[in-house]
Each structure stands twice: as C-alpha cells, then as structure tokens.
Computed example of a mutant assay.
Amino acid sequence: MRRLIAFDCAGETLAGTLDEAGGTTGLLIVSGGSEIRIGAHRGMALMAQAIAAAGHPVMRFDRRGIGDSTGHDRGFESSADDIAAALTAFRAKMPQLQRVIAFGNCDAASALALHAPAGLDGLVLANPWVIEAAADDALPPAAAIRARYAERLRDPRAWWRLLRGGVDLGKLARGLRKAAAPPPAAPQGLAARVASGIAAATCPITVLMARRDNTAIAFAEAWAGDAFAPTRERATLYECETDSHSFHRAQDRAWLLERLSAALG
C-alpha cells in the first residue's frame, strides 16, 4: 500500500511517500539535486514499488524547499536535518523496522556520506558527486574528458568527423587543455570531505557506479586515491556498464534493483 505522509523538520513540514510492507528491513531513498521524490523517469517511485513488493517498506521524501515540502532549499550539503527527520519518521510510521538502509544517487549519495545519521544500518551510494567545477566551466570533469578522448581515439568514425570538419576545434582545444591538467595529488574540497564521511561511517557501505557516466568517472578518479584507501578496504564496489546516470534503462534498473535487494538482505 502506498500513502502520503508529512513530518516535521526544523520548523518546516516535509512531504514523503511510504510504500508499506511487512518486512523488518526498510529502504530510505534520498533524492539528489532539486529532484522531487518521484525521481528521474519516475525511477524512484518504480524502485519503491518493486522493493515493497518484495516485502521491504520504502520511504521517499522531499527535503526542505523541494516539491511538496515547505521551507528554503539550501542544497544537499545542508540536508543533515532533513535526512535525520526522515529516518525518525520512517521508523515511527513502520515500528516493526529493525534495520534501515539508505540509498542516494549523485549528490544525494554525497549527502549521505556527509550526514548519515546514527540509526542507519547500511548505505548504498550511487555515483557520488565530488565535482567542484568553476562557475564559468561548462566542460565535463577532466577525468571524464580523458575517458571520452581515449574512447574516441579508438573509433575510426571520430577521426572521420575531425577530418571532415565536424568537430568544434575551439571546444576540442579547451577540452584537451583541461584533460592535460594533472589530477591533484590528493582529493580536495568536497571529494576530501566525502572520503572522510565515508571513512567515519560505522555501517556497511555499498558503492554503485554507472561506469561511463561523467559523475561516476570523476568519482572513480578520486576513489583510486589515497584518501579513499580506508574505505576501499571495507566498502563493496559494483559497476554497471552504462552511461545512464539515473539507471533509467530497463537493464540498468534491473541491475540497480538487484544490488539494492542484496543490501537489504
């Protein structure tokens, strides 16, 4: 059974959707960006329906200032109170819950890494966001550019497009300059804070990556560095052979559902 709920958060009212089931392990879905709880391509709603059908309660919610919730949207880095309030409401609405696993994609994954409240029993982090691009930089992250160029160098059609003038040479030059910049010796800024947050978590962690997605490619570069070494030793990493950031294709959704079901147990 699916029903709408409302709960308090720092003086505001958050809207949520609860897919009820009788199981004792539940899934708390945290939305990324300024996305409402239904998710891209209705992905979160479809996921919740499938997980609940398998016997696990699922809760989705809009953080402050998003969708049906009141308040001001202050971004994922200020969502600690929202996540904690949602977890409290989930346990109150489903008192049989013994375990709660939280899932987030993109900056929702980073929000969970930074702000996972006590009382969560596992984190599933998909394509964590660690990119801090300049405001005037519309290019993908350097790691993604390098990966794309490496792929295109192996594609004869890309060479043919270049020879025929079908490539923006200015954009190509800017991309080459950015790709040539050496990666930092250690993660900085957001990447460093995400690494610290994951390392400090006391619950099991699953990391999911859409292997050819720009956000995942940038995270993979940071993940390979020393700052994430403690996390690599205890987190479980899975890669899906897709460029879909939201896992929206049927085969990608099936893969994601399989990974979430494994985390739920």
Rank of each mutant, 00 (worst) to 15 (best):
M1C: 02
T13S: 13
G16T: 09
T17F: 00
L18Q: 07
T25H: 04
L28V: 08
I29H: 07
I38H: 12
R42K: 12
M44F: 15
M47C: 13
G55C: 06
T70L: 06
F76K: 00
E77W: 06
D82Y: 05
I83M: 05
R91P: 02
K93M: 11
M94K: 03
L97G: 08
Q98T: 14
V100G: 04
A102R: 04
C106M: 01
D107W: 10
D107G: 04
A109G: 02
L112K: 07
L114S: 08
L114C: 03
H115Q: 10
A116T: 08
G119P: 03
A126E: 12
W129D: 11
E132D: 14
A134Q: 14
A142C: 04
A144R: 12
I145R: 12
D155Y: 06
L162V: 10
L162T: 11
L169E: 13
G175A: 11
K178W: 10
K178G: 05
A180M: 09
A181L: 12
P183G: 13
A195G: 01
S196I: 02
A200V: 06
A200H: 03
A201E: 04
T206H: 07
A210E: 03
R212D: 14
N214C: 00
N214F: 12
F219Q: 10
E221M: 11
E221D: 15
E221I: 04
D226E: 15
A229G: 02
A229V: 00
D243F: 03
F247W: 15
H248W: 13
W255P: 02
L256A: 11
L264Q: 04
G265E: 12
G265D: 12
